Computed example of a mutant assay.
Amino acid sequence: MPVDPLHSAARPPRSAPSPHSRGPENHAVEVRRSARRRRTVSAYREGDRTVVLIPARMSDAEEQRWVTVMLDKLAAQESRRMLGDAELAERAGRLSEQYLDGRARPDSVRWVTNQNTRWGSCTPAEGSIRLSHRLQGMPEYVVDYVLLHELAHLLVPGHGPAFWRLLEAYPRTERARGYLEGVVAAERLPHLPAARSE
């Protein structure tokens, strides 16, 4: 997917808090740089603010990338409660009403454990949608995107222009696709150092 280039400006390290953009759940984001931090990144909620702690030497581009990663990680932790099949079906109904004018009406929506190479699937002839259990615990906007993706397939087979037009109304399509692509890329790495607190 296309990624907007980020300008990386050289600047001296600082340990003072720096204001950042607002997070996906309307939390203000504050980035705190520390000269004592060498490689680790951590984040936590502080009231209505999200604090992201990073090494002072990080570039602007690295800061932006890590803020996004940590916001997604916190969102996933906060949505750990797993939806049951009935709740998933209700959610699909709401998404269809909101983004597809209620035209996509699946007969069944459920979690499955036998989909390890794709996030979701649907069988239009049966009106059934299946989501991979690997999505459980991911941020809600990612699960919603996959649900909408499969709902759109009930209306349009394939991934042509008409299909993608159906998803244009969902504001987090590109962000969700980027999140899932990141998960796939991470799974292919031989070793992924975990971010940890200092």
Rank of each mutant, 00 (worst) to 15 (best):
R91M: 06
R80I: 09
R134S: 08
A152N: 08
L154S: 13
Q98I: 00
H191C: 13
L155G: 11
L192D: 05
Y99F: 15
W66M: 12
D85R: 13
V29W: 00
H159Q: 03
L192Y: 05
T173N: 00
T117G: 11
R118W: 14
P139Q: 08
V3L: 00
Q98Y: 00
V3Q: 04
R36F: 08
A194N: 00
L154V: 14
S96M: 08
L131E: 15
P5Y: 01
V51L: 07
A76D: 04
P157A: 05
A86V: 13
L155D: 09
S42W: 01
S108V: 14
L131T: 15
V112G: 10
L166P: 04
L155T: 02
A104Q: 10
A86L: 10
R110L: 11
H27Q: 13
E168F: 02
T123R: 00
P157N: 08
A35Y: 00
A56H: 14
M70A: 06
M58R: 15
M82G: 11
H133E: 11
V52K: 10
R33V: 04
Q77E: 14
N116D: 06
F163A: 06
H191R: 15
G182F: 12
G160R: 04
V183L: 09
A185V: 10
H153W: 01
R177N: 04
R188F: 04
T68Y: 00
P106T: 06
V109H: 15
L53Q: 07
L88V: 09
W119M: 14
L88S: 13
A194M: 02
Y179F: 15
L95Y: 01
A10P: 11
Q136N: 10
R91G: 05
A152D: 02
Q77D: 12
P124W: 13
S79A: 04
S59L: 00
L148D: 03
P171C: 12
T117H: 13
S59N: 05
R188L: 10
R81N: 07
L100F: 14
L192I: 09
D72R: 10
S128V: 12
M138Y: 14
A9L: 06
I129D: 05
P12A: 05
A76P: 09
P5L: 05
Q98A: 07
A43D: 02
G120M: 15
D4E: 04
L192C: 08
S15C: 06
D60Y: 03
S128N: 04
R103L: 03
E198I: 03
P55L: 03
P106E: 04
E78V: 00
S96D: 12
